[in-house]
Design a protein around this nucleic acid. Structure first.
Lengths: 219, 219
DNA sequence: CTCTTTTTGTTGAAAATTCAACATACATTC
DNA sequence: GAATGTATGTTGAATTTTCAACAAAAAGAG
């Protein structure tokens, strides 16, 4: 646990909590660390949500597969971020998404009821953590809106351009790397992969962008 | 203010707070009530979010219009519900959506910083309200996921059926009324209106549903 | 009640997406 | 380094969606 202290100090769930208290809190919360190899599932669609996840190392992908086999990728989880906090806070009985490790990852799991309900020891951090969760949930809501703005575009080209412009803005540069391969990008944008490839080629021919694999350069 | 007490007692923001304290709190929060005629805008896309809204009467619609003029309807706000709480909690400088009254409505506005930061009077309800906000934000996240599950379907027919099945589940009956006219339903599902009308006719001819305006009956 | 406006359904043509199949490039494994 | 498997780009055909235009029905205004 000790080796993650530096990272946990900067985790949104523990914002405003002094390092000195952290280890004690983690114990009080019953936090445990689990290891996942690449491609292993952390949480499965359809199962109850009990745990707030904190990604200690590696990276995860959130996705959903519908009745017809279409996969939607909701996004990736990066180091230090929380995941599935909304489902855990709402105690959902059937998670609407799955979370899968896209590389070897270490995850901290905290039973959400331990955060929400004051423990016998009455450690005074619950209020702070609930406040932190509230801020985090509001942020996540915004991220969700951002993706919705992209996927609500009607055509493949508009979706792609909206997404790339967002990436450029986030990177603060016209050159950036997207965290998805072609199939994943198609599933994030909710379009056909081959159509997406064709559209990227077209944009390249039109001189609107250059690209090499996951690297893009907007002109 | 008095006349709304009954409704406010059941508002998610004030859950677990005794009626006796409510009036005093509202004063402390600087809550004010505003009146909006049909079609008037409560919050505009692109403006800063400062206020948590509580719908006292009437109904509102949340929507967004993109660069090409395509409108996306995110959903309606019903009596007693909070709205724009996520944007206010995250202090966004440019709201990604607009909120418009679809009938004559009364709205209570609470400056979010008054909820988040303890006041001089140190009234002890901030913790409870922050907890309530956290629960509400988690719930809203789920609602958002529900809509995303519908709009992520690839075809008009699948989107429509996914939405109608959701409505039927919510209504607990195969007969129900949707809160949208055809154009609004198309903008909620993010499809073409005429294509949607055509699809409804087709489903009717196939004996899958009956419908009259906003009333539907799944067979 | 009448006139005007809005809503809804219908149609056909144009445009875009999806799907399947394949070739090439790239990465991984043994 | 050869062989296998995966990722990407390309193509054409089938399907869908979008768009524009219009007619009928319904709602709202005066």
């Amino acid at each position: 646990m000790q080796k993650y202290l530096e990272m946990l100090k900067n985790c949104p769930l523990f914002a405003g909590i002094e390092e000195a208290s952290l280890l004690r809190m983690l114990h009080c919360l019953g936090a445990r660390v689990e290891h996942f190899d690449k491609k292993y599932t952390v949480f499965s669609e359809g199962t109850p949500a009990r745990y707030v996840g904190i990604l200690l190392s590696g990276s995860l992908q959130m996705s959903r597969v519908d009745y017809y086999g279409n996969r939607s990728i909701l996004g990736n989880v990066k180091q230090g971020e929380l995941f599935c906090e909304a489902f855990a806070c709402a105690s959902v009985e059937a998670m609407p998404i799955s979370v899968v490790a896209i590389e070897e990852s270490e995850v901290m799991l905290v039973d959400c009821s331990h955060i929400l309900h004051t423990c016998q020891n009455a450690c005074g951090f619950h209020h702070q953590m609930i406040y932190n969760l509230m801020r985090d949930l509001a942020e996540k809501n915004l991220v969700f809106h951002q993706r919705a703005e992209v996927t609500s575009k009607r055509s493949t080209r508009e979706k792609l351009m909206a997404y790339l412009l967002l990436c450029a803005k986030e990177a603060g540069s016209n050159r950036f790397t997207v965290p998805f391969d072609r199939q994943e990008l198609a599933d994030y944008l909710e379009v056909d992969r081959s159509g997406l490839s064709a559209e990227i080629s077209k944009l390249r021919r039109e001189g609107i962008l250059e690209s090499d694999k996951q690297r893009f350069h907007l002109l």
